[in-house]
Design a protein around this nucleic acid. Structure first.
Length: 253
DNA sequence: GGCCAGGCCCCAG
DNA sequence: CTGGGGCATGGC
């Protein structure tokens, strides 16, 4: 296992996941039905002790090599990497990612987090007092559109229902090419190119993915005119995550 | 109190 | 296939 440094605050709050809390330096969430509590100080020991955490935090991927390469191809990217050197791409549960990024459309990250919490406390398993896992497809099987609308899911309610119905599409995704996998995901209502790219990245670790949201469109137009994701190959996804977080944090200038 | 949000659906041309 | 209106809701 590599011992790459991970910056928890950046990694857990850069818009790739929505379930983590930071209470005075204690990061906590429910992962694999287990309540996880971490601090930046005990992180290294925790991932060495628990294999599921090492996988979740993607400790075996080639971050040093990728960062080194990305720094050489563009000065903006180099600045972003130097500002957030410990950014990792998480390996999250595909169904949870599917639901979260359906919620993400025409929405704010703050409110996605709140909607995530509502789904957990309403339908998820309480693994410790007041700590809920994100609900499984089975736990959501009998949910209705009216129920989801009453919980504030709005126009996304029917999309969530379709995703619950078609969740088994996820079982087969890893066996397909990127474009075929994206095509399959987009048969789910509310999943378009951007949401599908996020599912393939955060749920299936497809590092060639290059999700283009409103921020990334601005980034590309401003800093990389006439270029696309292939410019960052084979590390498009990591470049995207750095640039997205960098632009959102300090703006484009 | 409007404005807008990690987009997508749907429908016109 | 391309473009643009509409969308539920709430945080600012």
């Amino acid at each position: 296992m590599q011992n790459h440094h991970v910056d928890l605050q950046t990694t857990l709050f850069c818009g790739q996941c929505f379930g983590w809390k930071n209470e005075e330096g204690v990061f906590h969430s429910v992962i694999d039905k287990k309540l996880v509590r971490l601090t930046q100080e005990n992180f290294s020991a925790s991932v060495q002790e628990h294999a599921f955490l090492a996988h979740y935090f993607d400790m075996d991927w080639e971050y040093e090599q990728a960062n080194e390469f990305l720094c050489t191809i563009d000065p903006h990217l180099k600045q972003a990497i130097e500002m957030f050197p410990g950014l990792h791409i998480l390996n999250q549960d595909p169904f949870e990612v599917l639901m979260c990024f359906i919620l993400s459309q025409n929405n704010t990250i703050l409110r996605i987090r709140k909607m995530y919490d509502v789904l957990c406390s309403q339908y998820g398993t309480e693994v410790e007092p007041f700590s809920y896992a994100f609900p499984s497809p089975a736990e959501l099987k009998n949910v209705t559109e009216e129920e989801l609308r009453a919980l504030g899911m709005g126009f996304r309610a029917p999309y969530l229902l379709d995703a619950i119905q078609k969740h088994s599409i996820l079982d087969d995704i890893k066996n397909h090419s990127f474009s075929k996998a994206l095509e399959l995901l987009m048969t789910i209502k509310g999943v378009g190119p951007k949401v599908g790219s996020c599912i393939l990245l955060y749920g299936f670790h497809r590092m060639e993915s290059f999700p283009l949201d409103t921020w990334m469109l601005k980034v590309m137009k401003t800093w990389f005119p006439s270029k696309d994701g292939t410019f960052f190959a084979p590390y498009a996804a990591l470049a995207q995550q750095y640039l997205f977080h960098y632009a959102r944090t300090r703006g484009l200038s």
